[in-house]
Design a protein around this nucleic acid. Structure first.
Lengths: 339, 339
DNA sequence: TATTCAAATACAATCGATTGTATTTTGTTA
DNA sequence: TAACAAAATACAATCGATTGTATTTGAATA
């Protein structure tokens, strides 16, 4: 009772060979229907469960995809995970979800662990601290295909599924300009991450298009937590800059900024209009509701998984990766609804 | 290049036996320092990574804990996961996170998968659809210890780490009563789940203590999504009931209700006061901010993991489980701040 | 009934690491 | 230097399932 039954226990109980049991449990045509029935009944009776460790070791496949995201609690990532799971399960794959919590060391350990556990593929959205890519090369050396989604590394030989951050940043900024803003603060994230660089470039391009001079003192870089948005806003207002608009590279920091602005009795959007990025559910709850850039996590997850599964099935990692870019859309709400 | 190096490759390259390599890589005292150094260097050179499948199969241990939650995007669960991960990593265990999305079938498949992959233990918070516990018994039959957290099943032989839902429900309701409410609606969840039953019982007990007659038409059961809160509120107001308070068994439904109430230009808290449950971050963002019951996900995760690790280390599943109940606290915010 | 061939099943190696036991090597002592 | 204990290493079985090959079984045909 203590030890879990194996195919050998079933074989012994029926006086047959374990290979036949294995084939029966895998519904092989090499076993006759009647013995299959006997084996299945005995398996049921003994409460047999296949030991996937042994099976995977022998088959050198795990039917498992490892997913690494910065934080599962972010709506964007949890919907990406949902897209990943849906697609993976349909293809018969399991998914292991891991969060780096934006820490490089954790990310590194996680990837080493997933590689040691021989996942068949990896879907990665890197942390804000990831400047060095050796831990990712480990996967490649182990012949494990890796697809980036959303937050990628600019490395040759990897595929990525991204959203059009440049366009998103551009649209957000231009929206504020059209609403009449001329002094637009931008909250950006670590510039090592392509997504923040691109959103920032979109911001600059929109200013340029509308002949508004770029002022670097209006760009504040942080890790974009709620507290960062709050204190960034405080700093920029304390510095006596003229500010009539804020484009934050994520919603969470935008909400932090709004909390500070509201405390100061400054009117949103009339005195300062605000646009966020990601369309977190919280952006519909805050008052005024937050204008933001929508990015479909579900879709990015599905597409990235499909791409990864292609590589897994073909058993080959392409020499140069492909990049798929998904469109974003601006969702106008009250935080920018100037007349 | 195609195949990953094994201990045998290292052994062959150095002209020694693979058992020595294995011992060296595990830092066994049975291997001399100089050979250890040679082996480590060669392992490094070949890019060796231990195959955990083989190792785990042989050792009959995976150093992995499986976690099943309804939804990773809920703040309470993502902080519980953080507590679980912290505790587990310190003890040298990995964590596999899975979400049932409140679906029984998914939960069943997930648990079967985790059992087949021979996790060393399970931490489970059941879905709203879980009425039947056979899939959980499977774990016990496989000698895998299982600890419930937050949402448990009333099964003998399992340990649980819970919060004091009765007290939480009682406090929430009494708080509304003290604020002067006499017609308090309660949004409850599926009664099969102990947590909702207990919150409901707390609600009834508070009414009773204050001699307010219980009216069953003021209790509405749903799955407590935001949309449910919205339509529950609509229904109860349309039915022309007198309502001056709402105690929702979670924050998300409370927020749905608030959206409807605000649309109807009814004043919160003066005409209707509201209390939620869970202290989701969103409850500080909505206006008025939501009074709620705080439950520490981090703590519940840590304690449940410690308990599970005890069972894993002792290699025994106790005949009768223990139940640990954590205190809750009411956080008063503006949605109930009547004068 | 003997022969043949296909279907069903058994045998045995294998996946990669671990570990108890056996053997060899090393260093120490007489 | 021979003898011996201790240290270092080699041998071989094992974890549980899979799978190519070999053998047996059984049915059909001559």
């Amino acid at each position: 009772m203590n030890n879990k039954p194996t195919i050998h226990d079933i074989a012994k109980a029926l006086g047959i060979d374990s290979s036949t049991v294995s084939r029966a449990l895998n519904d092989s045509p090499r076993v006759t229907k009647s013995t299959k029935a006997k084996i299945l009944a005995k398996a049921q009776e003994l409460g047999y469960r296949r030991n996937m460790l042994a099976s995977n070791l022998r088959k050198n496949v795990t039917n498992t995809i490892g997913v690494v995201v910065p934080r599962i609690s972010r709506h964007f990532f949890s919907s990406a995970i949902q897209g990943i799971e849906e697609t993976a399960y349909l293809a018969g794959y399991n998914v292991i979800i891991c969060q780096s919590l934006e820490q490089f060391e954790r990310e590194k350990k996680i990837i080493e662990g997933l590689v040691a556990n021989r996942v068949d593929g990896l879907l990665v959205s890197v942390s804000m601290e990831t400047l060095n890519y050796n831990h990712l090369e480990v996967a490649k050396k182990s012949n494990i295909p890796l697809v980036f989604f959303d937050r990628h590394c600019n490395l040759p030989g990897y595929s990525s599924v991204l959203i059009d951050d440049f366009k998103g940043g551009f649209d957000a900024t231009e929206h504020l300009i059209i609403k009449g803003c001329r002094n637009i603060v931008h909250f950006s994230g670590p510039q090592e991450l392509e997504i923040y660089k691109n959103r920032f470039n979109g911001y600059k391009a929109a200013l340029e298009k509308h002949k508004i001079p770029f002022k670097k003192e209006l760009v504040i870089t942080s890790r974009l937590m709620e507290q960062d948005g709050y204190s960034n806003m405080q700093n920029v207002l304390d510095s006596k800059q003229t500010v009539d608009g804020v484009f934050s590279a994520n919603d969470v920091a935008a909400i932090g900024a709004m909390k500070y602005i509201k405390e100061q009795q400054i009117k949103i959007p009339d005195e300062i209009a605000i646009v966020g990025f990601s369309n977190e559910p919280i952006s519909t709850v805050i008052e005024p509701s937050l204008t933001t850039i929508d990015q479909s996590g579900l879709e990015i997850g599905k597409i990235a998984t499909r791409l990864l599964l292609e590589y897994i099935v073909k058993k080959e990692i392409p020499d140069k990766g492909q990049t798929i870019t998904l469109a974003t859309s601006l969702i106008e709400r009250n935080s920018s609804k100037k007349t």
